[in-house]
Design a binder for these strands. Structure first.
Lengths: 357, 357
DNA sequence: CGGTGTCATGACATCGGTGTCATAGCATTG
DNA sequence: CAATGCTATGACACCGATGTCATGACACCG
């Protein structure tokens, strides 16, 4: 591979002049520039980042870790998707900014974090991003010390900067929209109770009810999600639905903890001869398009903006890099990213005047 | 950040000796070694890859590009998932091998490939991987010249090494298994005709029929998939099903082009009062667990082993790197990766003696 | 006891860029 | 015309590792 010396010799100038042509940091005579540029072209010269890094201490690299990072055991709600979508969002923004992403995966083994971090350190990454596969608290090994570090889809006790989904607001918006559509009895089949998202979404649900002056009825709320699909979850959901449908005032719509659960609810309801949305409406959460757009009828759901979270994290990172502010512990409000409600045909409009929202 | 000189000074030795301790490439006195190691520990020394790269010309970096690479327009069957799963597979293997992956995304713009490739070249990546989001032919810009390059989920005319899914074998295995279960009239709702996978899977379908001595009946095959979900696809699939069900000898099972289509088929069948699998069986393709495990009843399907394809590609890469054989055009048989059939409750066993397979 | 081999270590050059400083050439200015 | 300033360029050192070679201290052997 050609070096700056080869180019310099071919163009009949000094290496430093070639450097100046590349970086434009000092005036170069037009003819000299042309000579250098054609020499670079002929030799297919590509400057070496390694050499450049040696002096400038700027690598243009950022490290990203997905998979297990916490030292606490984790409950894998993991479909493996969210973290990948977040990574895509980060990738777009950073690529645009000329930053190259080093990506590693713990493969589920938290013990590997130390190794990966060291590898990143060897490459002198300018910052680290950790992406969790579902909204949760993490317990960071104290390795990623002084470095700029940003957490996505997770948070810790130390106040490390993070980007989180606004589960509460999302559920609130969805339920408010259901109410606007004329629904008053809103069943809620929640995620497992140990998930952070579950508590927040329940709050959002209650917020929306309170805002509309509706009473909170515990009979309409049931923990019905498990961490994985399977016959046990089908039973759990089925029982919850049966209980709710048997109420004096049965729900007119079922909010599900996520789209995956909604998919199960479709099957369960239909196998019992209950039509969606003819007999009862169904709503999800996440907007996994693979499910929400494909279900028949298509699913009304709240967007969990994974891609946007990734983009937000990338922007925060760029800002910090420019400001040269490493790992500033923020005590301001956390950046909570919320997504819109997507209205599809799985929910009936009981109140034709409520087409807004 | 501490350098090898700092460590050497602290330990009272020469930098070269520190280097020897790190690399173990020459004998070092035990006491000297201990002194050096404790100096490294105290200074939290991490060697610089950049400096190391300067002499050795080994970077331990591999570049990966996803998104549009081809200069030909593409039809986006893309749910965005496959490429991500493939990347995960690659990531696991390469991380294990101590190689760090530089990942970029064209964001759908083929024009960016040149930029990305140049960035990778600056980092002196030792190889390039391109990952497509669905099985297709690509038309590579002639940039990634001499370098070791591997294509995943796609192929080109130039004979660049690639890893592809064995669509034909997968469909063959699935249909053979259906036949073993006693099914004789097997409907096939295929993917759009312009997809490479469609032709291969249709061949697999015919292979299995021929092998069992069953006649191929064109009435049982319909192109019913579009590139995206939506009312048009629902209509297409619905019409195809109606036509097949009205045949003198209606199918007892419907094979769908992929799991997403199967999900639609579930909805369409049930909205017409047709029970799955009571009245008719359904099979998919891909084994997107999010769908196949969650559908009610769970979906019988053929695994499209994206993760395994990624792993295979990574292994091929490692082998080439070790052999130092850049971009050898292979003319041997292509590595086609096939996955198993996953048998779930969406297909009835009509022949109780056929529990094998 | 001198020659030879092994062990342990250091001096020095080098990889490919860039920062610093010097300098030659020419124009401008008082 | 001498002093000053700007343009364009090069010489040289340096970033932090490692490859090459030299060397001093022993041990072993005949």
């Amino acid at each position: 591979m050609a070096t700056i010396y080869d180019v310099a010799r071919k163009a009949g100038v000094s290496p430093k002049t070639v450097s100046r042509v590349m970086n434009g940091d000092a005036p170069v005579n037009t003819e000299t520039r042309k000579a250098v540029e054609s020499a670079m072209g002929e030799l297919a010269y590509v400057p070496s980042r390694a050499a450049r890094t040696m002096r400038s201490n700027k690598t243009g690299l950022v490290g990203l870790i997905t998979g297990a990072i916490s030292t606490t055991p984790s409950s894998p709600e993991s479909s493996g998707l969210p973290d990948l979508l977040i990574v895509q969002g980060i990738l777009h923004v950073l690529t645009e900014a000329g930053i190259t992403l080093l990506i590693s995966d713990t493969g589920g083994d938290p013990a590997k974090v130390a190794d990966l971090t060291r590898t990143f350190a060897q490459h002198r990454v300018e910052a680290l991003i950790y992406v969790a596969d579902y909204h949760r608290k993490v317990d960071l090994p104290a390795i990623a010390r002084a470095e700029t570090l940003i957490l996505v889809n997770c948070f810790d006790d130390a106040g490390t900067p993070c980007v989180l989904p606004d589960d509460r607001r999302g559920q609130h918006a969805l339920v408010a929209r259901l109410i606007a559509a004329g629904h008053r009895r809103i069943g809620f089949l929640t995620l497992p109770e140990d998930l952070v998202a579950q508590g927040l979404r329940l709050q959002g649900y209650r917020d929306a009810l309170a805002e509309a002056g509706l009473a909170y009825d515990p009979d309409l709320v049931a923990v019905a999600g498990l961490h994985n699909s399977g016959p046990r979850e089908v039973t759990l959901i089925g029982d919850a639905i049966a209980r709710m449908m048997a109420l004096d005032e049965a729900p007119t719509v079922l909010c599900c903890g996520n789209d995956r659960m909604a998919l199960q609810v479709y099957g369960i309801l239909r196998s019992r001869g209950v039509a969606v949305p003819g007999d009862i409406s169904v709503a999800g959460f996440d907007d996994y398009k693979l499910i929400s757009e494909t279900l028949y009828p298509p699913l009304t759901t709240a967007v969990l903006p994974y891609q946007a979270m990734g983009e937000k994290a990338a922007h925060m990172l760029l800002e910090r890099l420019r400001a040269n502010a490493p790992a500033e512990k923020e005590n301001g409000p956390l950046p909570l990213i919320s997504g819109p409600v997507v209205w599809r045909q799985s929910v009936t409009e009981r109140n034709p005047s409520a087409q807004t929202g």
